[in-house]
Computed example of a mutant assay.
Amino acid sequence: MSSYSELLRQKGFGRIILSQLLARFPFGMMTIAFVLHIEQMHDSYAVAGLALGAETIGAAISGPLLARWMGPFGARRVILTGAITGAIAMLIIAIFWLPTVLVIFLSLIVGLTSPPIQSAARTIYPSLVSKKQLNSVYAMDATAQEIIWVIGPVTAALLASSFGSAAVVALMAVLQIFGSILFSANREVAQLKIPAPNARVGGILRNRLVLSNAIIGLLMVGSFSGVEVGAVAILDKGTAGLVLAAFSAGSLLGGIFLGNRAKTDWALTKFLAVILLGYSLFWFAPENPWWIGICMFVSGLGVAPAFGLLAALVAKRLKQADAAEAYGWINTGQLMGYSAGAALSGIAIDIISSTAALWVSIIFGAATVVAAALTTKSLNQKPKD
């Protein structure tokens, strides 16, 4: 805890981390908001899952490109252009009844224009603190992100119950614009100069650290979509929001108490095993909201520490010219995993049952642990250029 308090005393660090949290808050609402709104529009969880998957595919495609474009075009311009364009697409989804093809297309646009807030913030952090503080920085960053996932789902569920799902999607659009403006107003963002990378787009994936990081992120985040889409299908709106908040609350506590204690090469595998343990416990009572909440809390304990450790490895071992694009590709891997998991979960619910989505989480979670164990050497040794 003392290491975290020292970070907050560093000039500019608290301002950057708080403003980027607000800018990214709509993402904490998006799963429930999109699933509820689009399912009501078309009476199909499969369509809702495909639309959510399209959004994540769009963000996966644009992540490394927008992160790379922050160099030549400037972070502020790229962030604000994307935020405004995506917000317009969200408002159209909220206001109008749309045929399946169009709602999936607009969801894709939301993803393609997703502002690279996280890549910008994580590229800035090393300039604000000393190198020995980087583990704590990224552990705190990953922990702080969980505030989004604790408050976001609950907010989305409660607002949808009171005002309708369209109001939640519209609120996401407004918050995206306001938060992006606030984040871009930081002088560190306005003055961010990212040197041109030496390699072509995608060349950074030849780095074993980055590729391993992206694969593990893909599998880990893919596991999240099963429990999130499954919770919405199994439980009522308000309860689903609270259960998802329990997942993030566990991650929040895990980040605070475990995040800066990663001391061995096998720390990542251990954190991921905790996530899998929570998933595996679902089957004792897969329709009991209290039990689901407890299981998700247990799983959450490993999430923020794992994310923080993965991000810190990139900050320590890559130059700034490569770090922004690397974070973009890592985010792409995570979003591809979420897209696949969301689509598979929606199909599993429609074809089998609402609890079938939980199997998606277990399968992805087991694959994540195996991948981390197999890539431990790549993650903990400096890759050759």
Rank of each mutant, 00 (worst) to 15 (best):
A54R: 07
L281C: 11
G346N: 02
Y125S: 00
L7K: 01
Y338R: 04
I124W: 14
L301P: 15
I148Y: 12
G333Y: 10
S62R: 06
A67W: 08
F73I: 01
V303Y: 14
P286I: 01
M336R: 06
I349T: 14
I352E: 11
G365Q: 09
R68H: 14
A367Y: 07
L192H: 11
F178A: 15
G202F: 02
R187T: 15
A87F: 13
I177E: 07
M1E: 10
L171P: 08
W359A: 10
I256C: 09
L18P: 09
L253A: 14
L50H: 12
V210S: 00
I79D: 04
G328T: 05
T85L: 13
K263F: 06
F34K: 05
T81S: 13
R200K: 14
G28H: 09
S44I: 07
F27H: 12
M220V: 10
T85I: 10
G238K: 00
T264C: 03
S180D: 12
A59C: 06
I32G: 00
L209M: 09
M29A: 15
I109A: 08
G49F: 03
M140E: 04
L112R: 02
I194S: 01
F105R: 08
F73A: 15
G328C: 04
E146Y: 14
E39H: 03
L65M: 08
S107F: 07
D350K: 07
S136P: 03
M41I: 06
Q118M: 12
E325C: 00
D322R: 05
A373H: 02
C295Q: 01
M30K: 11
G164T: 07
K132T: 11
A67R: 07
L52N: 05
N260I: 14
S3K: 15
I124T: 07
G202D: 09
W291S: 09
M41D: 06
Q191C: 14
L272A: 09
G293I: 10
F247E: 12
V101F: 13
F282R: 09
T332I: 03
L159H: 00
I104Q: 01
L98I: 11
W329G: 04
Y327N: 02
Q191S: 12
S62P: 04
L205F: 15
I362M: 12
E228T: 14
G341N: 08
N331R: 05
G86R: 01
G202V: 08
K384E: 07
L313M: 14
I347V: 15
F247R: 02
S251D: 08
G14A: 11
L272F: 04
S184L: 02
R206S: 14
N135T: 06
W69S: 13
L205N: 10
V210P: 00
P72G: 11
I292T: 14
A312S: 15
S161L: 09
L242R: 02
V370P: 05
Q40D: 15
